[in-house]
């Protein structure tokens, strides 16, 4: 169990005819369907995993389109009303002399979501098509994607805080646009997509990659 126990060849639970519980790490004989310790459902490999990954991935991508084309923020001042999309808002900030914050916003709301879509798609394709990249590198990628997912909600929270605060009745007010809902749903769907991925598939050797159970 400790780090000292570095083995050259690691036996997997599957090769030992066991099923590992993904919740409590308990091992059960192959074919057991429910973990007696924590009650979660057991499967040696989740072979519906990739289907669910792609389903949520597509849902996330569909929501990500209006998230970028629709306005995220509506700013109303005494004389005019202005709507800005995510990218439009960042460009505006850039022109108003705040390039650093503009870049941070672009990275957080465009760079990271796009990278997340690409990474999940790559991981899912690497299971079905094979890849040269090492399992450890791909596992790292998966860990990062899974960790970073929830942080994309920052954008939605910022919009909420801004619109609840900037409410000077007639003078100026900010209200959220439809993109905020689309963006939030896109984040939720990509999180579900990443969670659906069975990371154990990354480590399977090609000959055991298509499990029966």
């Amino acid at each position: 169990m400790e780090r000292a126990l570095a083995q050259k060849d690691i036996l997997t639970a599957r090769e030992a005819r066991l099923v590992g519980c993904r919740h409590c790490a308990e091992a059960w004989p192959f074919g057991t369907t429910r973990c007696e310790r924590c009650g979660s459902r057991l499967s040696s490999r989740d072979n519906k995993s990739l289907q669910r990954v792609w389903a949520w991935w597509i849902a996330g991508l569909i929501c990500y389109i209006p998230a970028n084309t629709e306005p995220m923020l509506r700013t109303r001042t005494l004389f005019h009303e202005e709507e800005s999309t995510i990218v439009g808002g960042a460009v505006e900030l850039y022109e108003h002399g705040d390039p650093l914050i503009a870049l941070i916003i672009l990275a957080a709301s465009v760079g990271i979501p796009v990278a997340k879509f690409l990474c999940i798609a790559y991981l899912a394709l690497s299971i079905t098509r094979g890849t040269d990249r090492s399992p450890l590198a791909r596992h790292r990628m998966y860990d990062v994607v899974e960790y970073i997912g929830r942080w994309s909600m920052i954008d939605v929270f910022v919009v909420a805080i801004l619109s609840s605060l900037v409410h000077f009745s007639a003078v100026a007010s900010v209200s959220p646009g439809p993109a905020s809902l689309a963006f939030a749903l896109s984040v939720v769907f990509t999180m579900l997509s990443a969670q659906s991925f069975d990371s154990r598939l990354i480590w399977d050797r090609p000959d055991t990659a298509r499990p029966a159970h």
Partner: peptide
């Protein structure tokens, strides 16, 4: 035994 929930390694 303990099974790694992420990669199925058996310990």
């Amino acid at each position: 035994y303990v099974v790694c929930p992420k990669c199925d390694a058996l310990y």
